[in-house]
Amino acid sequence: MGGHLNINHLMFLGQGALWTIGLSLIALIGGGIVGFAIALARISPLKTVRIASGVYVQLIQGTPLLVILFLGYFGLAAIGLKVSPLVAAGASLTLYVAAYLGEIWRGCIQSVPKPQWEAGEGLALSRTQRMMKVILPQAIRIATPPTVGFMVQIIKNTSLASVVGFVELMRSGQIVNNSLFEPFAIYAIIAVTYFAMCYPLSLFSQRLERRMGRGGSNLAPA
């Protein structure tokens, strides 16, 4: 037996928690960039682009993140591409988050009232101008609450990166547990830490949603 939980163990868990936040940010930024492209591709005037992006979303949303992570880490290594756990986890999460954020944002873009598009067209704005100056500023407002809500999913999903040996909060908990063997206490600490990261975001997302519900009337068409 390795003794009791001490300050060094807690420091180690804290370091893991920082990596959880770091990996979440990587997934959010990477997934956000790719997801934005997916959202635009899903409503592209070109049929092939629409279909290709639709297939991508269906494939990723029909596959567990765990399998994507294994594919990115062990799968790529087996065909000769050796990647570090950080790169494998970051890339897998980016692909995964992109499929979900892409769908959420497509819905938000499409929920901007149709007359806004037509008015933009009537003012002889190009498609890019209509998108950048008329549609997106309104879509961003609609997209904020569900995006904040999805950030909770991202933080929770980074826990799966532990299975490819990336030392984030979950993995650091497993390592501490290997030396102390007090699984219930340690995983309870881990759970509380995740809760402390996720719950404020959940509350923030709910508040944004309520505010949108009240202020929504000046956005929706009469």
């Binding site: 809760f195 719950y199 959940s202």
Partner: peptide
């Protein structure tokens, strides 16, 4: 509690 913690942690607990 459940919605704000990862499934992996819940399963281990």
């Amino acid at each position: 509690t459940i919605r704000n913690t990862p499934l992996l942690v819940q399963i281990f607990l």
